[in-house]
Amino acid sequence: MQKLGMGQAVNQALREEMHRDPNVFLAGEGVGVSIHLNPMFPTHGLLEEFGPGRIKDTPVSEAAIAGLAVGAAEAGLRPVVEIMFNPFFTLASDMIVNHAAKLRYLSGGKSAFPLVVRMKSGAGIGAGCQHSHNLEAWVAHCPGLKVVMPATSADAKGLLKSAIRDDNPVIFIEHMGLYFAPMPVPVDEYTTPIGQAEVKRPGTDVTVVTWSGMLGVAMAAAEKLAQEDVQVEIVDLRTLVPLDKETILASVAKTGRLVILHEATRTGGFGGEVAAVVMEEGFHHLKAPLRRVTGPDIPVPASPPLERFYIPGDEQLVAAIKEIL
C-alpha cells in the first residue's frame, strides 16, 4: 500500500493508462505547464513524461476543449480533457449535454464517444461560488453520460482507469479538498468498476448514503455515534450514473433508516433522486421518514465563517440521524 492524495492517485491512473493505450491523450488549460508547480496536482509531471503531442495545453476555451474531446473520441481516440472547475462546465455544456451525451443515440448506435471530462469541484477553498459549485445533478440528469465522484484516492485511481477504458462519455468529478489528504492506494494494477457503490462502514441502525467530499463527514459522524452505541452504515455511491440501487436498497433493508448527505445545494440535488428510489422501491423497509443533509440553497460564499456554514458538517448529520432513530 502507498499513501496518495486524490490528485496523485489521478496522476497515477492517467500515467498508467497513457502507457497502456497510445490513443489516450490529455487536453485542458494548464494540464502540461500549470500555475500549480505542485506534485499533489493531477497532471503534474505528465508533460515531461509524455511530451506535448499527448499532453495538450489549450487556450482558455472550454467549448473547444469539450468539442475536441467529442470529435476525437468519435474518430477513435480516447480523450481525457479537463474543465478546470466544475462551475466552468457551463461554458463546455453544449458540447457535453447536446453532443457527447446524444450523438451516439442520434447515430442509431453507429458511433461511440469514449471520452472522459475531469472537473474539480467542491467548497472549502475560500474561492467563492464561481469556483466552488457542485453541479453533479446537472450532468446526472443527461441520459448518455456516466457520472463518477470518488471519495477516496484508491477509488479515484481505479474508477478513472475504468472511465478511460469505457466506451461512453464519463464525467469524472474530483473534490479539491481530497487532493491533499494522503490515503492508502494499492500498488498493483487494478480497476474499480463504474456503477458500483461500496459500503465504506458497516452498521445496523441507520444508513447514510453519500459521495465525494462528504464521505469524511459521514465517517466522523459515525465515529461519534458509535460512542453512543448507534451503528451507522455508510454507503459511498462512487458512481451517480448508473446508480447502484441494489446496494442502497440492501442497506436500507438492513437498517430501516436513511439519511442522504451531499455537499451540493438541496433543491434539485441528486439526494432527491436517491430518496425517490428508496421511496419507490424500499418504502416498506423504512421505520422512519428519511432525511437529507445538504448544502443550503445559496451560492457558496467566500468568507470562512460563511463557507463553513455552507458545508454540511458531522454535527448536522448526527442531529439528522438522531431525529429519526
Binding site: G53, V70, E74
Partner: peptide
C-alpha cells in the same frame, strides 16, 4: 459522423476530428 443543429456546434467537433487525423 455528425449533423449538429445547435448553431455553431459543428466547428469545435470538427476540431476534434481534425486533431485525431493529425494525432494519428
Amino acid at each position: 459522423p455528425c449533423t449538429s443543429t445547435v448553431v455553431g456546434a459543428g466547428p469545435p467537433i470538427a476540431v476534434g476530428q481534425a486533431f485525431a487525423q493529425q494525432y494519428k
